[in-house]
Design a protein around this nucleic acid. Structure first.
Lengths: 126, 126
DNA sequence: AATTTTGTTCTAGTCAATATAGAACACATT
DNA sequence: AATGTGTTCTATATTGACTAGAACAAAATT
């Protein structure tokens, strides 16, 4: 797990961590069934507070991406398909960015290619 | 301009306002050259503070979407194409959501169609 | 069996962000 | 002249973010 935390961003540390763990799963670096490091060891590695990592784990659990087993660890959940609630939330999150792209004159094809480039980037093996 | 502010969300009011103005432009309800209401009158309409609207306007100006002319008003800028900096920032903003979609088992086609449905929704005339 | 590690929970503190409020200013518009 | 405009300033209350230390019970390890 190569995690890069940038302390001087307006993005909270726990959000950065959450996003990079999600990316790690999407990239295939972490697979369903795998366990995340303990909050203490991970916090020590990253040079952040234990509670910050804990908050990230609970955010991932709330999203339904990991399952926290008390006194044991955080395990990546395997997903067959996306449920409707998650889908709608995802849609609401993406919508503002699509709208902004359209304001800047991007066409449907432009936006679709932007999305494709992101997917390709995430599918790359590194 | 039909603006719906939800005070009991974790999304800041000024962000809600910013996003809905952007959506309004994407939908064609507001066009380049049009002026936004004054911060005072808009604040009164929405039932929020003047400074909150002011913050939203400055966020839109920072994004390069409007131009604030002191003592005059806020005018929607016309965009021919998107510049590289904005494009990259947009890409970084969208990436986490795409990654999350992939974690939930959505395929490239699934994601492409999600994007298409958002675009269609924004292009609808209402 | 004893020790270590685990996630959890609690209090505590600092700093920044959010939102509201009121006032005053200089400049345009009416 | 009066009004409306964006700007700027101080002020306050609330919440979020982050760090810190301590303690607990249960699991894993030795």
């Amino acid at each position: 797990m190569m995690i890069q935390i940038e302390p001087d961003t307006d993005i909270p540390i726990y959000t950065q961590l959450t996003n990079q763990i999600i990316e790690g799963i999407a990239r295939g670096h972490i697979k369903p069934g795998d366990s995340l490091p303990s909050v203490r060891s991970f916090a020590a590695d990253l040079g952040v507070n234990m509670h910050t990592v804990n908050k990230s784990y609970h955010e991932l659990e709330k999203k339904g991406i990991i399952q926290i087993v008390p006194k044991s660890g955080a395990v990546i959940i395997k997903h067959e398909g996306i449920d409707d609630v998650t889908y709608q939330k995802l849609k609401e999150d993406v919508k503002p960015h699509i709208a902004e792209a359209m304001v800047f004159g991007m066409t449907e094809e432009d936006i679709q290619q932007l999305v494709k480039s992101i997917i390709v980037e995430l599918k790359e093996k590194n």
